[in-house]
């Protein structure tokens, strides 16, 4: 069976990201999954067990400052060389900023088509994408070269399939042009134990209705009780209630959790763009006419400052 390259998304802090396990699961339907680890020294060893658990038959590793000290260009060069030598059936990457950027460069290097934001890839390489704020489903195919497809996090349920991958170190031959954008500093911003927004099974988001930054504690409390991540509407972010990286919507993150809880969010089309494909949507809003109720499976019309603390108390009681 031909190999399918899965470009691993992982970090020291978070380990192997869920989207990687989803990609391995999809890759198994297309061929024999080979994980590609690009990162600092020792990255492959740290992630090997997890990758094997989800079916990676092989791990290709390119480690060290030559790949890690610059923005994506060296990574794309390494993967392009690998593609030329192993002739895989497909290349899967995460539909994240970095995944899309690597895919972009690969497409040019290999003169190849690419598809982004896929939620599924069929055995013949046809990708399913959800576009226009979740309103339209599109099936597309790469018609030039092999399928290079980026997979949106939370598209499928990762299914384990034990394998014992050997790690093969790749020779890294990058050019000076690959080193034009140098990463001089990586700053970790404070982050609690909450799951990552795009990968979380439960997301609790707050909007302008939360009123101020301090009140976001309410949202965080409910998220923590449910083991979920915290999100925010753009109005909440623009008003300074919550940091931008948590914005859900057209110009923020796209999330597709099992449960999305919208607190004090009206449900503007640009917000829906980022959460419309959630499995279950629950909303609390004091305006019975708020558009969010048109898509909520369950809605509470009421003051969130009464409803949310009561709900939190009730969950605590049940625990």
């Amino acid at each position: 069976m031909a190999e399918v390259l899965v470009v691993v998304e992982a970090s020291q802090a978070a380990g192997v990201k869920k989207v990687t396990l989803e990609m391995l699961t999809i890759a198994r339907t297309l061929g024999s999954p080979s994980a590609v680890v690009l990162g600092g020294a020792g990255a492959a060893a740290a992630f090997a067990a997890k990758l094997g658990e989800f079916g990676a038959e092989k791990i290709y590793a390119a480690e060290g400052d030559e790949v890690d000290g610059y923005l994506v260009a060296p990574k794309a060069t390494v993967i392009a060389e690998l593609v030329k030598s192993v002739q895989p059936a497909a290349v899967l990457l995460g539909s994240t900023q970095e995944g899309k950027e690597i895919a972009a460069r690969l497409a040019i290097k290999l003169d190849n088509g690419l598809l982004t934001d896929a939620v599924d890839v069929a055995a013949d390489g046809t990708a399913t994408q959800v576009v226009f704020a979740g309103s339209t489903i599109v099936k597309s195919k790469v018609t030039k070269g092999l399928p290079i497809v980026t997979i949106r996090p939370n598209s499928t349920t990762p299914v384990p399939a034990a394998a014992t991958p050997a790690v093969e170190q790749l020779t890294i031959a990058v050019s000076d042009t690959d080193k034009l954008a140098k990463v001089v500093e990586r700053v970790a911003e404070q982050k609690g134990s909450r799951p990552e927004l795009t990968e979380a099974g439960i997301v609790v988001s707050g909007g302008r209705g939360i009123g101020n930054a301090d009140n976001f504690k309410l949202v965080e409390e409910l998220a923590d009780l449910l083991g979920g991540a915290v999100g925010a509407s753009r109005a909440a972010v623009d008003s300074g209630y919550y940091p931008h990286q948590f914005q859900v919507g057209q110009t923020g993150k796209t999330v597709s959790p099992q449960l999305y809880l919208a607190l004090g969010i009206s449900g503007a089309i640009q917000h829906r763009a980022g959460m419309q494909t959630s499995k279950t949507i629950v909303a609390v809003n004091k305006d019975a006419e708020a558009p969010i109720f048109e898509l909520a499976d369950f809605g509470v019309v009421g003051d969130l400052f009464k409803v949310v603390p009561q709900a939190a108390e009730e969950i605590r009681k049940r625990k």
């Binding site: 909520a296 499976d297 369950f298 509470v300 019309v301 009421g302 009464k306 409803v307 009561q310 939190a312």
Partner: peptide
């Protein structure tokens, strides 16, 4: 849209 309840004191509980 699914069920929509109006909070009459037990909205959190119903949620």
């Amino acid at each position: 849209g699914g069920a929509k309840v109006i909070d009459e004191g037990n909205g959190g509980g119903e949620l």
